[in-house]
Write a protein that binds this DNA or RNA. Structure first.
Length: 196
DNA sequence: AAACGGATGGGCT
DNA sequence: GCCCATCCGTTTG
């Protein structure tokens, strides 16, 4: 397999890209090994959405959100975890898709070591867990996700996906909006019991 | 099974 | 000073 082309990311709005990324693979080729998995849960963050970091303008922290579609936006949360996003829309807009959960596929032993658990369901079922399992930190903020070593690639099985929709997890403002997307009956999503 | 507190850094009203 | 797009271990119903 190989990274998708740059054009994979353009021509869609953020909600469309959030749905399109479900079923695709996120892969990181590191010195310690190749790790990756299938994306099973995403959330959309929109420009006029109070939960979106870009909604109050461009700062040093969120500046990569304003890059072109397909760039990485990685930020530190709660002082100790990172969250990984795929930038959407054209340069200068400030929207992104948060990747919330993966179904581990490649490099599972390395992920287990990094996460300190043998439980496969617990390897990447949350945005902070994904970054720990894949070795993603702020040094890849702004990276082009159509290029190695960190990239999106096509999945072997990507047909007839049953995508469900709910409110987002952990947000204060913007609670009502149903901007979370996940594979309905997949065991690797971060939470099972949310509305509808 | 749900609820809570601690760890810990940086941006903000 | 307070609020987070979190996680984990522990306590409570």
């Amino acid at each position: 397999m190989a990274p998708v082309s740059k054009s994979f990311f353009s021509g869609y709005d953020t909600v469309q890209l959030a749905r399109k990324l479900i079923g695709m693979r996120l892969v990181h080729e590191t010195d310690d090994g190749i790790v990756g998995g299938r994306i099973v849960e995403t959330e959309a963050y929109l420009r006029d959405d109070p939960a979106c970091h870009a909604s109050r303008g461009k700062t040093k922290r969120n500046s990569s959100m304003f890059l072109e579609a397909g760039r990485a936006y990685v930020y530190l949360i709660y002082g100790m975890y990172c969250c990984f996003n795929v930038v959407s829309c054209e340069e200068g807009v400030g929207e992104a898709v948060l990747i919330r959960a993966l179904e581990p596929e490649t490099g599972i032993p390395l992920m287990k070591m990094r996460r300190g658990t043998e439980d496969e369901v617990n390897l990447a079922s949350g945005p902070g867990k994904i970054c720990e399992a894949l070795g993603i930190d702020r040094s890849v903020d702004g990276h082009a996700l159509w290029e190695r070593p960190l990239y999106i690639e096509e999945s072997d099985y990507n047909e007839d996906l049953d995508i469900a929709c709910s409110t987002r997890i952990g947000v204060g403002q913007g609670k009502e909006a149903k901007l979370r997307f996940f594979l309905r009956s997949n065991g690797h999503v971060s939470r099972r019991t949310v509305n509808e």
